[in-house]
């Protein structure tokens, strides 16, 4: 199992540049901690793999149209954070009922204003973007299960300039030859 507990000592040990990203994540879903406890937030049955796939596309867009990866997330949620599948089921049902199939439609709808549904959408998005499922989807620090590294969606938005760390991009010195490319797109409207 690619499961790992990150304890308090570990965090303090994390090197200087790294700790920042984690410090940011501590407040990952701040404010939603108690929501799930206070409200009846989930459905009775976990979301199916089919529905999670459709829900992922509806919340994230075409970049989440990857059935094997969606199924891997489904399995990981089932193992590491099964209650999320209940919340996802509720979100899925409500979006279906409202006929929402794209991120634009979801964010323009009243559903996106609902704190619980919004938090569920964030939880799902976090999994796809960070490539892992947290044991507890309002605390990214509690460890969880790894699903993807290379295919985590956080890398794609900068893929034309940077690398997925540890992978190569081009010949040595590629980094010194990007000026024209960067200045061309950063000046574009």
């Amino acid at each position: 199992m690619a499961t790992q507990k990150v304890g308090a000592e570990d965090r303090s040990a994390i090197s200087r540049r790294a700790f920042l990203s984690v410090a940011m994540a501590a407040s990952f879903l701040a404010g939603t901690q108690n929501l799930f406890a206070q409200q009846q937030t989930g459905s009775e049955t976990p979301v199916s793999a089919d529905d999670l796939h459709a829900l992922s596309i509806a919340v994230i867009g075409k970049t989440a149209d990857d059935r094997p990866l969606s199924d891997a997330f489904h399995k990981a949620f089932g193992e590491a954070n099964p209650s999320f599948l209940l919340r996802a089921s509720a979100l899925s049902a409500q979006m279906k009922a409202a006929g929402l199939t794209t991120p634009a439609a979801f964010s323009a709808s009243p559903l996106a204003k609902d704190p619980v549904l919004h938090a569920t959408a964030i939880g799902l998005t976090a999994a796809w973007y960070l490539g892992h499922v947290a044991h507890d989807d309002h605390d990214d620090h509690g460890g969880g299960q790894v699903v993807a590294y290379e295919k985590a969606l956080m890398w794609a938005p900068t893929a034309d300039v940077t690398v997925i760390p540890s992978y190569s991009r081009g010949a040595p010195n590629y980094w010194a030859e990007q000026t024209a490319q960067i200045e061309a797109h950063s000046k574009a409207p």
Binding site: M1, A2, D66, P68, A72, G131, V146, V147, A148
Partner: peptide
């Protein structure tokens, strides 16, 4: 390589 299947169980 099927990296999805690969990463899912490390």
């Amino acid at each position: 390589t099927d990296i999805t299947g690969y990463r899912a169980d490390a």
